[in-house]
Nucleic acid binder design. Structure first.
Lengths: 237, 237
DNA sequence: CATACAATAGGCCATATGTCCTATCTTGCG
DNA sequence: CGCAAGATAGGACATATGGCCTATTGTATG
């Protein structure tokens, strides 16, 4: 973990934000399992995600959830709701020790005229997120639960194969839009094939390469994303 | 159909765009079944959709498609790819006589510093589209083909119940992420219940209220969208 | 340690959907 | 008119998935 100034430098936020906005930056951390954003809460800030691993999901009226994506730094949360009076659409949950810089929406609105670069970056980032959603949607709809579980495990396990965060099978079924029953079947199938093992109720991935081949390449498509610095270099003459 | 100036006035584009960008506006129309945007084409313009009905879909490597949304004026197409070097992500197809104003990306980049309002509006619109995608995704994943077909028909039929555009059952199955076989079964079910009829291969909706109840409320959620004018009024002091 | 509760494991059956195949129907064209 | 290509209708069967239920295991708590 670094200081606010350290993160500002690391991600060139001083080239993205006007001085007033730099002054308005707050900062805070969350531990595994804690919420960074709760869907439905009023939108007071947008958040720059600078440290950790987070998952993003929606919650339907009946309480069912659906995993949207995993995010790693650098990224932005809550920007989609910048002009929405409805509150946050998605919940964001830390899966490891995480750290954010927050920027009050009120400050953004007040200084909008002087922060064209921020809006350009947000346009870039939201455009990319839209494209990601389309890919994820196609895959979610057409691939079996096995592929979706493989994607989930591929993105959400550490090097030793243990799942990050504290989700049990029920939670994972929920996130994947599957039933507990079906997920249990699929887990057994993967276990029988030696791709993972279950020790005291915990899932551990044994054969990461094979898991990747099963995964529909859903989450965490790597390297497609520009930091603010690279974005500015490529788009501001 | 109106003149470019007429549309500019109608949607207050002169308050959204700098004079250089207003001058750079082009215009063109498309008939039913014609493409407004072809996925993969290089991104030369963003498009303001001012007249007609259009559907937006993605195409996967294997040729399968997936319907993303139906759009009516006012809306923007191609803005998600404004900063993307990858070409358009989605295809947009006119379903009725349609008309667009196009704005060259090169002109936007050149005048970016003077067009903060455009970027703000695009942030607003993309944020809303992201939220829509999340809702559509949950519904697509958890609702049966029957609901998705109901949504499709609800959004894509005229007052007399005839389907707009020239899609046959095969195309619709493709768009809904279903098989032809399953879609045919579902169509028969709806026909047996008197919700629609089939005359010489054409589908016609008979009982729109019942169809709406079946639909997962997927496409065309109404009234949630601000024109540029209303957006500016609410967000620019 | 004993109990209670939550999570896991898996049987059983119904439904939704996909794949393959064949017959019928439409439509454009010679 | 009569044929050929494409679209539609539907049977037969396999797979994916969901819902319900029961037994077992793990864990927290008194």
């Amino acid at each position: 973990m670094d200081s606010v100034e350290g993160y500002v430098r690391r991600y060139a936020l001083d080239r993205l934000l006007s001085p007033e906005l730099l002054d308005a930056l707050g900062s805070w951390g969350r531990g595994p399992g804690e919420l960074i954003i709760r869907a439905g809460d009023p939108v007071r800030d947008i958040h720059f995600f600078v440290e950790g691993l987070a998952k993003v999901y929606s919650t339907m009226e009946n309480g069912q959830r659906l995993l949207a994506a995993f995010y790693r730094p650098f990224d932005v949360f809550g920007e989609a709701e910048l002009f929405s009076p409805q509150g946050y659409t998605l919940s964001v949950e830390a899966m490891s020790e995480s750290f954010c810089l927050s920027l009050p929406v009120a400050a953004i609105r007040k200084t909008a005229e002087r922060n064209g670069r921020l809006f350009m970056y947000l346009c870039y980032r939201m455009g990319a997120k839209l494209a990601e959603r389309v890919v994820a949607e196609s895959i979610n709809l057409r691939y079996p639960v096995e592929s979706r579980l493989a994607s989930y495990l591929f993105a959400a396990t550490d090097a030793a194969g243990w799942i990050l965060g504290r989700d049990d099978l029920g939670e994972i079924a929920d996130f994947l839009g599957s039933s507990y029953r079906q997920l249990a079947r699929v887990v057994r199938g993967l276990r029988d094939e030696g791709i993972l093992e279950r020790t005291r109720g915990r899932i551990r991935v044994l054969d990461r390469p094979r898991l990747e081949r099963l995964a529909g390449d859903l989450y965490l498509r790597p390297g497609m994303q520009l930091s603010p610095q690279r974005f500015l270099e490529m788009n501001i003459p």
